[in-house]
Design a protein around this nucleic acid. Structure first.
Lengths: 341, 341
DNA sequence: GCGCATTATCGAAGCGCTTCGACGATTGTC
DNA sequence: GACAATCGTCGAAGCGCTTCGATAATGCGC
């Protein structure tokens, strides 16, 4: 493998000149730069990563802390991971995947060994050891999701509170006054996951403000959970004319199947909105209007947040992305009531 | 951050002594070793990764080349990735995740920069540029899956040919003489994926040997594809009394749903076997007897294969894992025929 | 109790890079 | 046309580690 010395020799300059030509930290004559670049191409030179880490302060590696909980949703998880890798590559960074049970030790190890420049943290729990850890380590970090009560770290997330309000507003504006919600599996809720709490808060507030009646089901995990949840919801809120999903695909699919079984049609009998959908809501059996989870945007911002801290540009801050709406025709006005007032 | 010099000072020895105490490459007096270890603990010393890479020949990083094709199955993909990470950690290795479109450049970059000791390669295509690449780079590599015609590389895979034979044998032994197969989405087949070909080969051979009639459907991707495939299969092979799945969850679920819709019960009306199942076939609506894909075993072996080459222990070789069988009661003897011979 | 192998330790070289200070050569200023 | 500022380049230090002799201390046989 060619070293910088080989390149310097081939180009007839000193190694520091090569280094500066590559980093751009000092000006280099155009002709010299060209000779250097040609030598680099010919020798297929790639700078040695270890030497770079040791000499410079940079490793060009970002850790991705992605614990897959016992009930984690594999496809969503994978989408985040892939998206972070792509975002990192766009900045010439590689990703070290930390995905074992013990997230803390992984981050600590990689950081103490100066293997990484920073870390992107996903799957944030309400009480997350990684928050004090990266704070103590002074490690440039970007959270995907907002740990409750944190404001001294870079976090990126959908504005779930706003998404909850928008969901209500959209359906209420269409004329609905009784909206059911099928949420995430109750095992998520038991862990008191922050984004669920924020969505619910916004949703409930807006319902109260608008006098909309509502009921929520937190199902069992999986397709069957979705079916059951829908049945329970009908008992709880028989007058329901609109349904909001705030959950992952399998539950949506289970509920949609049940709805079809009952002979109900969307949106004629029931308006449906997929809120904060990490999946492609247009590939369901019934395409659903959605407030999409801007997954790629979140991952890209997270990577940029982390790298900004690495470069000491700006300060950590919490960013909430405004929800958007994608109409796929699953929302309509409710049927005229059987006995109007 | 503490350096080896700090540790040496604290323990009252030279840095080389500390290094040898850590690597065990020369004998160190027990008392000295203890002092050193105490110093390491107190100072929370972790060796600098860059320095290690530069001085030693090791980086303790393994690349994972995991291209997610356009039709890749996210959950299966994630299971592999997670499993590789865990296997690597068991050997004190970290994983650099290469998961962009351009796999070749990722591997080349990481290798040329001496960032990685080796690479684990998954999602092997029939004609895979990564084979000549790692061969040319002389990079220790382990394939998960066997690229066709390759015998000079470490590969680990399920013995798909054998799995195909076993599937037939198991059902034929139970008395079935007409077996339908629902395979992977035809987009996989079009790419001429090697493992599908091997399964099919073993399956067909065994059918021929035993005089079993068979038909295969390569469905569209997704749940709906599964339903359609089952319907077509019934037309093609009306006397079918057993069904083999060689595909991913969504297709299985679609087909199972169709089977339930038709009022058929498993295994009374239809025996079903999930072959090479990467998913938990006991969590389906109807638990299925299966020939499981030994995913963890494959990933662990792949990591060990790669590390063996890093340590120059042994030579590359192709290993096929013998299929196993998990009985979950979805296979029974066929119903006595309506008009016996 | 002498030589010899073994054990325990040290010092120094060197891995390939970044970066600082130095210095001659240009360029610009009044 | 003298002086300063800037440009382009070089040499050398040093990042933290591994590893190769070298050296001192110990154990052993006879």
């Amino acid at each position: 493998m060619a070293t910088i010395t080989d390149v310097a020799q081939a180009a007839g300059v000193s190694i520091s000149t090569v280094s500066y030509a590559l980093s751009g930290k000092r000006s280099i004559a155009a002709s010299t730069r060209q000779r250097i670049m040609r030598a680099i191409d010919e020798l297929e030179y790639e700078p040695n990563a270890g030497a770079r880490m040791l000499a410079g302060a940079r490793t060009n590696i970002l850790a991705l802390s992605a614990p897959l909980g016992p009930d984690g949703h594999l496809p969503t998880h994978m989408r985040f991971v892939t998206s972070v890798v792509e975002a990192a590559r766009a900045h010439d960074y590689d990703v070290l995947l930390l995905a074992t049970d013990d997230e803390v030790s992984g981050i600590r190890r990689a950081a103490s060994r100066s293997l990484i420049d920073g870390v992107v943290i996903m799957g944030v729990a309400t009480v997350d050891e990684r928050v004090p850890l990266v704070r103590r380590l002074g490690l440039p970090s970007a959270f995907i999701g907002v740990p409750p009560g944190v404001d001294d770290m870079s976090c990126i997330d959908l504005d779930f509170d706003r998404a909850g309000r928008d969901a209500v507003a959209m359906l209420a504006d269409a004329g609905h006054t009784a909206i059911g919600v099928i949420g995430h599996p109750h095992s998520y809720v038991d862990r008191d996951t922050n984004f669920i709490r924020r969505f619910t808060h916004g949703f409930d507030e807006e319902c109260r403000a608008r006098g909309v009646r509502t009921a929520t089901q937190w199902p069992e995990i999986g397709r069957t959970g979705g079916q059951q949840a829908y049945d329970r919801l009908r008992e709880q809120l028989p007058e329901m004319t609109a349904l909001v999903f705030h959950c992952n695909e399998p539950i949506v699919e289970g509920a949609l199947r049940r709805i079809a079984q009952l002979g109900l049609s969307i949106p004629d009998d029931l308006s449906v909105l997929a809120a904060c959908a990490s999946y492609a809501a247009d590939e369901l059996e019934t395409p659903l209007s959605a407030i999409p989870l801007p997954l790629d945007e979140m991952c890209h911002s997270a990577v940029e947040n982390a790298l900004a801290l690495v470069d000491s540009l700006g300060h950590p801050q919490v960013t909430l992305i405004a929800p958007t709406y994608l109409d796929r025709g699953s929302i309509a006005a409710p049927k005229p009531a059987a006995h109007p007032a």
